[in-house]
Design a protein around this nucleic acid. Structure first.
Lengths: 157, 157
DNA sequence: CCATAACCTAACGTTGACGTTAGTTTCCGA
DNA sequence: TCGGAAACTAACGTCAACGTTAGGTTATGG
C-alpha cells in the first residue's frame, strides 16, 4: 500500500485534528523521534510516526494522561520493541528479566487505570441515562399539556 | 444519621483528596454555592455540599470536563432541581418546555460523551491486556531460563 | 485563658500544553 | 523560473487550575 507515503506537517495536523505546533511540540518533548527532513529542512512524516501520534492522542484524550506520563509509557513500549527485534535477530538481550518485570508493572498500572475509569464511567452513564429518561418523560407530558393549551386558545379565537 | 455534621475545610479536603485551595477555588468560580460561615468567618461544609464537590471531581477526573463545562452541567442540574421543587410545591413553573428541552439536549451530550469514552477505553483495555498477557508469558520463560543458569552456576561451584 | 493550630483574604507565582508572532527559507505548480 | 503558499526556528504569550506566601484573625484543648 502507500504506507510509505510522505506527509507534510499540515497534512498530518489536519488528518489528526491538531495543529502543526502540537506536532512540533511532541517532537520537542521526545514523544516522537526526530522527524526526517527534506534537504531544505521541512519535516516528512511517515505512517508509523502518524500512528504513534494517534496513539499519543488516545492516551491523552481517552485516558487523561499527561505528556510526561505518556512519555514513560512510550519509553516502556519502545524498550519492549527493541527487545523483540533483538530476539528476532537471534540475540539474547541482557537485563531482560528486570526490563520485562518493569514493563509488566507499568502495563498493569495502565490496565488498572483503564478499569477504574471504566467502572466510574459505567456508574455515571447509568446515573445520567436514568435521569435523562425521566426528564424525557416529563418533557413529553409538558409538551402534551402545552399543545392542549394551544388548541383551546385556537378554539376561542 | 450525621448528615448535618459540620466539616472544616481541611477535613473536607482530606476526605476528598484535594487541597483547601481547590475548595475555595470552586466556590470562587461558582461551582458550589457560597459556603456558610461561623461567626468568625470560617467555612462550614455540610454533607450536601461535599457530595456536590465529589460530583464535580468525578465530572472532572472521569469525564475530563473543564470547570467551565462542569459549571454549565451543574447549572442545568440545578435548574432541574428548582423545577422539581416548584412542582412539589404545587406550582406550575413557566418556560418549562424550553428548559426541559435544553436539559435533555445537554444530558444527551453527556451520555454520548460517556459512551464514546467507554468505547475507546474498551478498545485500549483490550490492546493493553493482550499485550500484558504476552509479556507476562515472556517473563515467565525468561525467569525460568534465569533460574536454570543460576542452578548450573551453583552446581559448578 | 492562652498558645498554637487552623482559618481567612488578597495577591502574586507556577506549570503544562500549546497559541501566536516575526523574520526567514523552501516548495511547487502555472 | 518565479511568486505565492507552506515550512522553518526562536521566542514570547496565554489560559486553566490551582500553588504559595504574607499578614492578620479565629477556634480550641490543656
Amino acid at each position: 500500500m502507500d504506507r510509505d507515503k510522505a506527509w507534510t506537517v499540515e497534512a498530518v495536523a489536519e488528518r489528526l485534528g491538531v495543529t502543526p505546533r502540537t506536532l512540533h511540540y511532541y517532537e520537542e518533548k521526545g514523544l516522537i523521534p526526530e522527524v526526517p527532513r527534506t534537504p531544505g529542512g521541512h519535516r516528512v512524516y511517515d505512517e508509523d510516526t502518524i500512528e504513534r501520534i494517534e496513539h499519543i492522542l488516545r492516551l491523552k484524550e481517552a485516558l487523561g494522561y499527561s505528556l510526561q506520563e505518556i512519555r514513560s509509557i512510550l519509553d516502556t513500549e519502545d524498550r519492549l520493541k527493541t527487545y523483540r527485534t533483538r530476539i528476532a535477530e537471534g540475540q539474547e538481550p541482557e537485563h531482560n528479566v528486570e526490563m520485562l518485570a518493569d514493563a509488566v508493572r507499568l502495563l498493569e498500572n495502565v490496565v488498572r487505570h483503564i478499569d477504574e475509569k471504566m467502572t466510574r464511567l459505567a456508574a455515571m452513564r447509568e446515573q445520567y441515562s436514568d435521569r435523562l429518561a425521566r426528564i424525557r418523560a416529563r418533557l413529553q407530558r409538558e409538551e402534551a399539556a402545552h399543545r392542549a393549551v394551544d388548541a383551546s386558545n385556537g378554539e376561542s379565537e
